[in-house]
Design a binder for these strands. Sequence first.
DNA 1: AAAAAAC
Length: 749
Amino acid sequence: MSHVAVDGLDQQLSALDLNSADGQGGGTGRRYIPPHLRNKDAGKNAGNAYSSSRQSGYSVPPVLSCYPRYPSQELSFYHAYGGAWPDRCDSPGWDGAPNNCFVNGFHDNRMNGAGNFTRGPSRSDRSGRGSFRGNRGGTFSQPMHNAAYSGFENKDGGWNTALNRDAYSSFGGRPDRGKSAFFNDRGTGSRGRYERGGFSAGGGMGNSRWVEESRDEEDWSKPTPPNERLEHELFSASNTGINFEKYDDIPVEATGSNCPGPIDNFHDVDMGEIVMGNITLSRYTRPTPVQKHAIPIIKAKRDLMACAQTGSGKTAAFLLPVLSQIYTDGPGEALQASKTSGQENGKYGRRKQYPISLVLAPTRELALQIYDEARKFAYRSRVRPCVVYGGADIGQQIRDLERGCHLLVATPGRLVDMMERGKIGLDYCNYLVLDEADRMLDMGFEPQIRRIVEQDTMPPKGARQTMMFSATFPKEIQILARDFLEEYIFLAVGRVGSTSENITQKVVWVEESDKRSFLLDLLNATGKDSLTLVFVETKKGADALEDFLYREGYACTSIHGDRSQRDREEALHQFRSGRCPIMVATAVAARGLDISNVKHVINFDLPSDIEEYVHRIGRTGRVGNLGLATSFYNDKNSNITKDLLDILVEAKQEVPSWLESLAFEHQHKNSTRGRSKRFSGGFGARDYRQMAVGGNSFGNRGVRSAGGHGGNRGFGGNKGGFGNFVSDGYGGSYGNYGGSYTQVDWWGN
DNA sequence: AAAAAAC
């Protein structure tokens, strides 16, 4: 497709007759009051704050004002939202979409919406109640894009249906596994030992009593009795099967000494009956590429640094083998330690817990999500997963811990708190997982991670097994990561730090003042059955935009770090469930969250670094489905231009010619740019040497190189390293242009 | 000039 299409777009924009002062942070004297700071009259005041002048501003028919901005070439882009995507329309994800759902009178509709809902219920009221958009839904009544998601679900059939009902048949069968059967069953092997854990989540079978009563004959590798209610709770959710079958040829690099080869089937490695049963109940058919490689590596007790594209099944890639190993090995010393600590405290239920495995995550919602996955794979085992994170009642979390904790999922701050309160000891933590490891080791988190991993009682590297997973892995983070790893294997699945080709990425030039109007155009072009995630750069911006969308009549919600944890979780739930198909979010939602059916990610504000971009758009196009990512670009985003261009090229996306030009200019403007701020001091020659080695290992396509990067050498610090098929997506930043990573963020830091 | 993560 021609790249000339958007040239002259800015002139067209400036010719628009919009009341652009209403743009976010617009230049008029109106002062914005965040919703959570408003009083009970907030709704009214907020309305006034924006006042009717705003409405007149947006009563310019947005779709009409939008069309002229787009030369004919780009129009097809918009029609694409209705299903006529030129180069994607034959893909299963989009072909179910009717062509007319975009145009279809949504303009009238929106005006109705605005009129009716300008003074909506207060924010707290609307939390989760917004079906306004749906109410206007005559327009959107056609179920868009459903085909995309029904497709692979059916595919699971073969393997699944055959085994599903019999997932645990080898455990003694349960032809009569009704309720009574369940209770009888339970009573036999472990009478009096298990009470149901409280805490709605009380996933594991264990409670605080079992430890005392445990005997050596306890075999952790044997499944505990089934629990029909729990089983239904855990596994009845929408299909989580992953369709990666068409990605068998995905490029993979595994480097490090004696790297175990990949599996092709979950049966190819012995993970035990509990794990296999739960895999079946989860309707996982075949391992995803990252799982194929990571599972045998972890089972071989190797440390691992794994890069895999967003949405590629990383969570299960570590949970399955780690849990399997715990089932095989049993609780070991941790059990005794837990008993001892109970005696020391002299009080039942006050014991310190010694988890065998720790999973750290950078956001609370992600921790919760991982925990939910862990509960599935811990079903019918003696492993009790727990989760701790800030913003929630610590007392409740402590009580849950005291019921037993073998696998702990945590955010760093709350974990440190728990450690200092003596509730958690990491002395017997044999498995450490850093999820979204790039974030966990960046400036904000690194000290806490070191506090937890290096400055407490956790076994040292080599004694424990350490695994890191992320979609992106900037060089400086890889260097830090080596502090925690021993003789590790570096696994790169797909293009490291790059984006899935399942995601169609669009970059459009939108001035700040036009962003809102433009956003409405996009939202109106989206089917009501699909979810749209809108990223902004600031918390205030998130409130403001949510407020705006809300008053425009959209069922939307928002998530950011200034909202209460309860509101955050509620928002996520409303979004996931589709009750609020639009969610405005800050970086808090950028990483790891697995929300099915997110068809569109909109970067209302582009982030200041490319990793964040990669993670954000990875919220769509997950598990083999197609997704769309639209980014609003303008003068403020020059810092990301070059990296963005690289990503687009690499993912074989259309590149606007203006972006190419700007990237070229920017590159020259910044020819002397320095290295990243975090390394502006104390970045020794040794580190450079380390970064410089190892590049070549990535040059030989598809070959698993056994050569020596296991542990103390760098990976691909130069162009040769990642510039080939396994690219980290930083091609320009790291090697091609001066060899130093530069990041000048939004604010010029 | 920011987000996130403990209270």
